[in-house]
Design a protein around this nucleic acid. Structure first.
Length: 263
DNA sequence: ATGGTTGGTAGCCAA
């Protein structure tokens, strides 16, 4: 089965593009970030017409995440990242979807950007990552297949940027951000895209400004991390870079993983 | 090269 993630940067602005992408690539599960929509304002019908079930966790104007699944969504396990009841930002949703004889848990996140560094935004990013680590640790104890995927807003390594030096003052490439990401990975998760494409030059984001896409000044910040039980099933992973060349593109492109289905 | 562009919203904020 194919599970994909895409920061669409506004569901209303990207409605046509998102529908075209779903029709062309037919993921079984698609996770969106930055829907920038209230839950009740999400345009569900055109997606349902393509055969998708939806679980939406939105907020007004900013953030917002959604899970679309051609298979039944057995349960929406979590809305909002656990660990801080005072955090109202809609950046996390988790659902259970049938796979093979069992289920796969899909954990869709939009990790805080954290810029500019030296502000409460960066503090919030690091605190959010600490909460994410704790939550993933609890999921690993279940010893089940799951994927944690979405816009992590972290450039893991220099190889994940065309021009790493351009990002040294950015929250996405701070040593603290990278260390927190590494701690999560080192709990025992597998970076699906890295595993299938170990080389350099794979990016998932190009800024709208200064012709970044034309110059291929990209970074890899959208990730799919697999639990050990899911990593055993990885067949392939990749990106849908063609969407970035469309009219009115998102600044991110989709990332997907193909998991072997064992009946 | 301290600029540049986009989305959501209603003035700027977030990215």
């Amino acid at each position: 089965m194919r599970i994909a993630t895409w920061n669409i940067n506004g569901v209303k602005a990207r409605l046509d593009g998102a529908l075209t992408w779903l029709k062309e690539t037919s993921p079984d599960v698609a996770c969106f970030q930055e829907i920038k929509s209230l839950t009740e304002a999400f345009p569900k019908e055109p997606f349902e017409d393509l055969g998708y079930n939806l679980a939406v966790h939105g907020q007004k104007g900013f953030n917002g995440v959604a899970i679309l699944s051609k298979r039944p969504i057995d349960e929406v396990a979590v809305r909002g990242l656990p660990g801080d009841d005072g955090d109202a930002q809609a950046r996390y949703i988790e659902a259970l979807v049938p796979m093979g004889r069992g289920i796969v848990r899909v954990c869709n996140l939009y990790l805080p950007n954290g810029n500019p560094i030296g502000t409460e935004k960066f503090t919030y990013k690091l605190a959010w990552m600490k909460r994410l680590k704790a939550h993933i640790k609890s999921l690993l104890a279940l010893e089940e297949p799951f994927v944690v995927l979405g816009d992590f807003n972290v450039i893991p390594d220099p190889v994940d940027a065309k021009n790493p030096q351009a990002w040294v003052e950015d929250a996405l490439f701070q040593p603290e951000s990278r260390a927190a990401y590494r701690e999560i990975l080192n709990l025992g998760l597998t970076d699906a895209l890295r595993t299938c494409h170990p080389g350099s030059g794979i990016y998932t984001f190009w800024d709208y400004q200064a012709g970044a896409f034309q110059k291929d000044h990209g970074i890899r910040i959208d990730h799919i991390l697999a639990s050990p039980q899911a990593a055993d099933l990885i067949v392939n992973a990749g990106t849908d870079k063609f969407t970035r060349a469309w009219e009115k593109p998102s600044d991110h492109i989709p990332v997907w993983v193909e998991l072997e289905e064992r009946a």
